[in-house]
Amino acid sequence: MKMALKKGAIYLHYKPHILMVVAQIGYTFMYIITEASFNHGMNPFVYVTYRHFVAALVMLPFAYFLERKTRPKLTLALFLEICVLSLLGVSLTLNMYFTSLNYTSPAVLACMVNTISSLTFIMAIVLRLEVVNIRSSRGIAKVIGSVVSLGGVMTMTLYKGPALKNIAGHGVIHTRGSKTVVQENWFKGSLLAVASCITWSIWYIMQAYSLKRYPAQLSLATWMNFVGAAQSAVFTVIVQHKKAAWTIGFDIDLWSTLYGGVVISGIVTVIQLWCTEAKGPVFVTMFNPVSTILVAVLAYFVLGEKLYVGSILGGVIVIMGLYLLLWGKEKDEGQSKLKEPEDLKTHMSPSDGNKLNEEP
């Protein structure tokens, strides 16, 4: 009995960690599937629009029935807040993000996404969502971990080193040869990726505040998908006039849209919202390096892309930084839990203490 309770306590403690690893695995396959879909000719703007409409339609019945008793009333102020969240997390950010994927590669984009954790960490400190005491080992570990992770990302991005021999041949999925020809497009894609990382970081921070006013993860995710899809549709209609771009067949375009909608914009978004409410936005973004390493490995075997020594070295550095950050956060949470009973005793009056000591 005690063993079962102990295992249950361990699972509850590490549940957010497990969920975030699962989320990053989901992101990993998204990179590969969307890359194949874009190579097939899928328009990134159309993909973002369809993907979030799919997510909203799938999640709507779950949000309506499971949260009908706990869902707060949606006021005009909350709806406007959701519109901003949708702009930052769906329409603006993802359109820039997937357009950059069209110009670069899954491995490069996954590397740049890791800057989100450092940006979110800095914003969280400024807004006092994250406490850092540089006089303690916990605070030092969090700062060093953030810097080390960023250093690993920079290593993966700026240092290539020698390429490993591709034992997978040309890969299962072939990428477009024209992608590596135009350096200007690569630069444009990098700028779009950086811009999307900045807006994404703001989105994660804003979620922490929105969840306090609207603590219904399923409903919030559904609203963001609906509004974000509508915003993206308006933008796409303006920039994309060809009707053929809106037509998808029973092929990789359909599968990538369904996967992105159900798994990423649906399940993974709810996981992230739950973990943001439980652990904060910094915790959620700290796991981005996991998908970076998995994408690099899959791109090597599946897409036939080259794997460089710099990517491996950067990946190791990123994981070291992630471990330091996680260690610092875990110690901070443990310390705050120890302080709670002490604070309770400090604020109790003598009469309150006598009442507690009285026999029932």
Score class of each variant (00 low, 15 high):
132 V>H: 08
313 L>H: 06
162 P>N: 07
243 K>R: 13
275 C>H: 00
140 I>T: 01
254 L>C: 02
357 N>V: 08
251 D>Y: 05
76 L>F: 13
278 A>Q: 13
303 L>A: 02
103 Y>V: 04
299 A>H: 01
172 V>P: 03
349 S>L: 14
45 F>Y: 15
262 V>C: 13
125 I>T: 11
86 S>C: 10
140 I>A: 10
196 S>Y: 13
32 I>S: 03
266 G>F: 08
97 Y>C: 11
130 E>S: 08
71 R>P: 05
59 M>D: 06
351 S>T: 10
172 V>G: 00
267 I>V: 15
109 L>H: 07
282 V>L: 04
86 S>H: 12
223 W>L: 15
4 A>V: 10
58 V>G: 07
75 T>Y: 12
271 I>W: 06
18 I>F: 15
157 T>C: 10
207 Q>V: 00
261 G>K: 03
34 T>A: 07
106 P>I: 02
172 V>A: 02
240 Q>S: 13
89 G>K: 04
266 G>P: 10
211 L>Q: 01
184 E>S: 15
298 L>A: 10
300 Y>R: 02
60 L>W: 05
260 G>R: 11
74 L>I: 11
198 I>M: 12
214 Y>G: 09
300 Y>C: 04
19 L>C: 08
88 L>F: 14
46 V>H: 05
40 H>L: 09
253 D>L: 02
137 S>P: 01
190 S>A: 14
258 L>W: 00
52 H>R: 10
170 H>V: 02
222 T>D: 05
32 I>T: 11
145 G>F: 06
305 E>V: 00
166 N>Q: 08
333 E>T: 06
334 G>C: 10
180 T>R: 13
108 V>W: 11
150 L>G: 00
354 N>H: 09
137 S>V: 12
41 G>D: 07
252 I>Y: 04
127 L>M: 14
169 G>F: 07
275 C>K: 06
249 G>T: 01
288 N>F: 13
20 M>I: 03
317 I>K: 00
99 T>F: 01
110 A>S: 14
277 E>I: 00
4 A>P: 00
208 A>V: 12
329 K>Q: 13
333 E>H: 08
